[in-house]
């Protein structure tokens, strides 16, 4: 097995979201071998090829990886942290085992600008996405922490062209 274990070094309150936690952990293997594949897999990824570090978001949890160091942010409690570590370990090992059939990605994606996104949203502040305003939703889309499907009005025929532009931008 490529990645045997991940040790938790410390757990602290998350600065961005004080009701959540951040953990610093250390993997038993250098994860540089899999970060280009994680970059290809997660469209939320911010990848730096110089040190092969990566940051990506999955289910609103943020992962930052630099070699053996893995930081996980925005989880609810230590039980969830260990569930996430199990998930991440399985993911890394699956990628490592099947990397022959996968295509790595060595470039960093450019984020879609917030105002570009905002201008394509309905701008009704209907809150159906669960956020306070279309601007907040646009900012979350920019950080790839939300999905355009969370905006029901975008599925209406009159917004079909805007939706298509957003889909192309995020493709």
């Amino acid at each position: 097995m490529f990645l045997q274990d991940i040790d938790v070094i410390d757990v602290d309150l998350c600065v961005q979201q004080p009701e959540k936690f951040i953990a610093h952990t250390r993997a038993s293997a250098d994860l540089s071998a899999v970060t280009p594949y994680l970059n290809a897999m997660f469209r939320t990824a911010a990848y730096n090829h110089d040190d092969r570090s990566i940051r990506f978001t999955s289910d609103r949890v943020e992962y930052t990886i630099i070699r053996e160091q893995v930081n996980i942010a925005k989880f609810a409690n230590r039980t969830e942290l260990h569930e996430l570590l199990d998930w991440f370990k399985d993911l890394v090992n699956d990628i490592y085992d099947s990397r022959g059939e996968m295509t790595p990605m060595y470039e960093c994606r450019k984020p879609v600008p917030v105002f570009f996104i905002y201008n394509l949203l309905p701008k009704t502040n209907c809150r159906m996405c669960g956020e306070k305003s279309c601007m907040v939703f646009a900012a979350l889309l920019n950080k790839l922490e939300a999905d355009i499907d969370a905006c029901p009005p975008l599925s209406e025929p009159k917004y079909a062209e805007n939706r298509h532009k957003l889909e192309v931008a995020f493709a």
Binding site: V11, L13, E19, F21, A76, N77, R78, T79, E80
Partner: peptide, 16 residues
């Protein structure tokens, strides 16, 4: 519960 000690209420998430 070990975390979120400033809150006067129990955390929302199980199992804590």
């Amino acid at each position: 519960t070990g975390g979120m000690s400033l809150s006067p209420f129990p955390p929302d998430d199980p199992p804590d």
